[in-house]
Design a protein around this nucleic acid. Structure first.
Length: 587
RNA sequence: GGGGUCGUAGUUCAGUUGGUUAGAAUGCCGGCCUGUCACGCCGGAGGUCGCGAGUUCGAGUCUCGUCGGCCCCGCCA
């Protein structure tokens, strides 16, 4: 039964050889006399022929064959007649004449065939994921994903990184996402948390002198799902000692370039652009701007000051802003309906509405121009460089709402006007994030990246005076408007770490109980260190051109974080609960 | 927690204004077929219209609830 070849490798060079193939029945074409079978395995398809004149018994047995049966065949490779060559198949020049057929395992009729072109609903596909995974798309995506991790391991190995595993059962820490918890049977009332990332462990490995660590590792966050977010996902996690941005950026750029080269055969430009957070927000309204197109945001707060349009003046009086995007050459495309849709986008992100001005050849078409003096209007149009054919859209509100709403109006408009060149690959670093942001609900500062991120040296004196203005030595890597990775220079001195905790409202007692081990370690010769982590699933999704992260994960979860195949999560035995000393409270 | 959208043969979908026996394609089963490769031809089976109430003489269609899928806000780097 042992196969001599896979289903993807026989060519006219193998003619007259006796071969053994194993695989699944992809298609069966029964001509009564002749039976053709396309035999499939992950390497390809080979047509095998059952001819009663070659072997009566095998031909007879083949009549019972159906799709997805697993079989092995022994037979001779023959050249196909010239006009029977199938150029669509790798093996299309040959076929195998069977004289021995073995049914290794029959198959029930599957609910769908992974090989047929018909689209199948995702629930059905997920329920029978093992069948779906036979299909070309997922085979390709998982191969790409493997190509990426293989490249990462090669590149980082060459750069003297060592892969080290860290615990999965670990300690729940404040800050960040909601933890997945695991009860401890041996320690009633105590819980492990699954890691949101191996952050603290990798920093401790630097204290240990490991110098360069990496890990391709599962992380867990109990938050709501999106098309690019699963509750368990994989990070490419890295940490280095005695480095700063100058060493990290080129190293990462080389890694990403190698991934593109090895996985897609695409050469990308290095170094990547560097964009300060403040500039990213000002120009694009987002800390992960899509740089494949323009439509930049313009601050027109000065130009509209004192206008009779209440929405603008009230926003400004309340300390807010008025900003605009000039959507060039769009008066024809942006119908009233389309503008309404863009307004809905703006509203999704907190805007109360969206003003607009269409610059027609001889007039301004707009619900708001009547509030403007001519001179003011001229200044405004000049500021946004408005020309006939352009549409100017406005957002007036708090800086956050203005940025969020215009950032997303910008994206929607670009899609609507087909401004995005799908072939472009725009990678950029976003740097100098705020160290902390103020949480209105909790009435305290929270770390924007995480609590171990170092501030810029020149901002160290702002901890008391202006914490909101402290910039962090944090950096994100953005690919075509998607955040694919982020990291920071870490705090390696205990005093700075304590200042940070104080700013976050974590008192020394809490700091001690939650992070004591780290604070201790920082006192035993912690080297300056820094690191970064990448979302492997997202990178794979983007490189595959897949519509969701689920298409690059072998066994993904649905939006309610369930697995359609295993039915996880599920209720457990009372006995298990009892052992864990747990009880439900469904009040 | 909130908004939007979808749910009809195994699968993908159609189903008019609420009206007779819910259709198509594909898959499946049976028959015929020696050059097909999405083989072809003939015949057949296959339905809790997600589930539960309600309105109505009558509900796949309308209303309410519920379950599930997807997308988004919040949340999450």
């Amino acid at each position: 039964m042992q196969r001599t070849h896979t289903c993807g490798e026989l060519t006219d060079k193998n003619i007259d050889q006796v071969v053994t193939l194993c695989g699944w029945i992809h298609t069966r074409r029964d001509h009564g006399g002749l039976i053709f079978i396309d035999l499939w395995d992950k390497y390809g398809l080979t047509q095998v022929v059952l001819n009663p004149q070659i072997d009566q018994l095998a031909h007879q047995e083949a009549q019972s064959l159906r799709g997805n049966f697993v079989i092995s065949v022994v037979g001779k490779v023959r050249a196909r007649p010239d006009d029977m060559i199938n150029p669509k198949l790798q093996t299309g020049a040959i076929e195998v004449y069977v004289d021995e057929l073995d049914i290794l395992n029959p198959s029930k009729t599957p609910p769908f065939s992974a090989w047929e072109s018909q689209e199948v609903g995702e629930v059905t596909r997920l329920k029978h994921r093992y069948l779906d995974l036979r299909g070309e798309e997922l085979q390709k995506n998982l191969a790409l994903r493997y190509q990426i991790t293989r490249t990462v391991r090669n590149v980082l190995h060459d750069e003297k990184f060592m892969e080290i595993e860290t615990p999965v059962l670990t300690k729940s820490t404040p800050e960040g996402a909601r933890d997945y918890l695991v009860p401890s049977r041996l320690n009633p009332k105590n819980f492990y948390a699954l890691p949101q990332s191996p952050q603290l462990f990798k920093q401790l490995l630097m204290v240990s002198g490991m110098d360069r660590y990496f890990q391709i590792v599962k992380c867990f966050r109990d938050e709501d799902l999106r098309l690019d977010r699963q509750p368990e996902f994989t990070q490419i996690d890295m940490e280095m000692s005695f480095v700063d941005e100058k060493q990290i950026f080129p190293l990462v750029e080389n890694m990403i370039a190698s991934i593109y080269k090895e996985a897609l055969g695409v050469k990308i430009e290095t170094p990547f652009a560097i964009l300060k957070y403040e500039d990213a927000i000002n120009r694009f309204g987002s800390d992960k701007p899509d740089l494949r197109f323009g439509l930049e945001i313009v601050d027109v707060s000065e130009e509209v000051k004192g206008v009779g349009f209440k929405v603008f003046t009230q926003a400004l009086e309340a300390g807010g802003q008025v900003k605009a995007i000039n959507i060039k050459q769009s008066t024809d495309t942006l119908s009233r309906k389309a503008l309404d849709n863009l307004t809905e986008v703006a509203k999704t992100y907190g805007a109360k509405g969206m003003a607009w001005i269409k610059i027609q050849e001889n007039e301004l078409q707009s619900p708001i121009v009547k509030f403007f003096e001519k001179e003011m209007l001229d200044r405004l149009i000049a500021k946004v460089e408005g020309k006939p054919g352009d549409t100017i859209v406005f957002s007036a509100d708090t800086p956050k709402i203005v940025a969020d709403s215009l950032a997303n109006v910008r994206l929607s408009a670009a899609k609507l006007l087909n401004l995005i060149d799908e072939k472009l690959i725009k990678l950029a670093w976003v740097t100098e994030f705020p160290l902390v942001e103020y949480d209105e609900e909790a009435k305290r500062h929270t770390a924007m990246h995480h609590p171990f991120t170092a501030p810029l040296d020149e901002d160290l004196d702002k901890f008391e005076s202006a914490p909101g203005e402290i910039r962090a030595r944090a950096y994100d890597l953005v690919l075509n408007g998607n955040e694919i990775g982020g990291g920071s220079i870490r705090i390696h001195r205990k005093e700075v770490q304590e200042k940070m905790f104080k700013l976050l409202g974590i008192d020394s007692e809490e700091a001690d109980s939650k992070f004591g081990f780290l604070l201790d370690a920082l006192q035993y010769g912690a080297p300056p260190h820094a690191g970064i982590a990448f979302g492997l699933d997202r990178i794979a999704m983007l490189l595959a051109g897949a519509p969701s992260i689920r298409e690059v994960i072998a066994f993904p979860k649905t939006q309610k974080a369930t697995c359609q195949m295993t039915q996880a999560p599920s209720e457990i035995d009372q006995q298990q609960l009892k052992e864990l000393k747990l009880k439900y409270d469904l009040s």
